[in-house]
Structure formats: C-alpha cells, structure tokens
C-alpha cells in the first residue's frame, strides 16, 4: 500500500477573486447611513456568504482596525472588535471547543450582547445587597 502522502491528490484551488466584497462594502455603507439617520441597527451574516480569501482580505483592508476589542467568555469564546469604521463591529462567536459558530458584521453603536441587561443588573444588585447584608451584622 502506498503511504498516504504518495497518493497524488490536489485540492481544488481556492478562488482568488474578490467577487463579493465590493457589494458587501456598499451594503455596509448603506446600513451606516441608515444607522446615522434613523438609529436602526443592521447585521450581515458572513458565515452565510460565499467569501473567498481575497474577499476577506479586501473587507479587512477596507474596514481597518478600530480601538475597541471585547472578549466574551460565555458558551466558549466570542471575539467582538470595532473596525476602523466606527459603528461597524466584527463579531465572531466560537463554541467551547473553538469551532466557529457564526461570524457577522454588526452595524450599530454597540452590539446588543455587550451592554448589561436591566434584568441582569437587577439580579446582580439583589445578589450584591444580599452579600452586603450578610457581611454587616456579623461584622467579621
């Protein structure tokens, strides 16, 4: 039997044509304009689009790198970073074993997943108050 490396298999060549990125940039620009005028948020699911490596490079290059980077540690890692275009966020959700669940571009002031929710704040407050109460009377 041949060793596996000796079997001449060539993977199908990856496309090096950036066919979809330019259209995507137009979509982002339109969404930003809407956000500015009406405050309506927008989201583009990158994992559902057929993007070639060249498309991704072009997208990264055009959007650049911004100032904010957020790492969420829940159900595995999530990495959210603002691109060089304020209001455009690159969102990457991964599962606990590191598999990419979904990748998207969120066009908003801040992605919904980041700010604390009133219900959670209330629960946190309740917990904090309970802890404060249990500390005070005993005094130790």
């Amino acid at each position: 039997m041949k060793p596996i490396d000796a079997i001449p298999i060539r993977p199908a060549p990856a496309s090096d044509v950036a066919g979809n990125a330019p259209a995507l940039l137009h979509e982002i620009a339109a969404a930003l304009d809407t956000l500015l005028r009406t405050g309506r948020e927008y989201c583009i699911d990158l994992s559902a689009l057929p993007l070639s490596p060249a498309d991704r490079d072009l997208l990264r290059e055009a959007l650049g790198t911004g100032e904010v980077r957020v790492d969420l540690d829940t159900l595995g890692n999530s990495h959210i970073e603002e691109t060089g275009v304020p209001g455009v966020w690159w969102v990457c959700h991964r599962s606990e074993d590191g598999v990419l669940l979904t990748e998207s571009l969120a066009i908003c002031r801040v992605p919904e997943i980041i700010p604390a929710h009133p219900a959670d704040i209330a629960m946190g407050l309740q917990g904090l108050q309970e802890r404060m109460a249990s500390r005070e009377p005993g005094g130790h």
Partner: peptide, 26 residues
C-alpha cells in the same frame, strides 16, 4: 448557570445556522 449573553449568543448561532436574516436572532 448560563447568562443572558450566552442565550443571545446561542440565538445568534442558531439564526445563522437556519440561514435566517440576522435580525431574526433578536
């Protein structure tokens, strides 16, 4: 033991899986 953010992330991943428009996650 999971947070609301985990829940949102779960919804985002599932909406993407279902090829739903991203707004459907919300």
């Amino acid at each position: 033991g999971l947070s609301r953010r985990a829940f949102l992330k779960f919804c985002a991943a599932t909406a993407s899986l279902l090829a739903l428009p991203p707004a459907a996650a919300t």
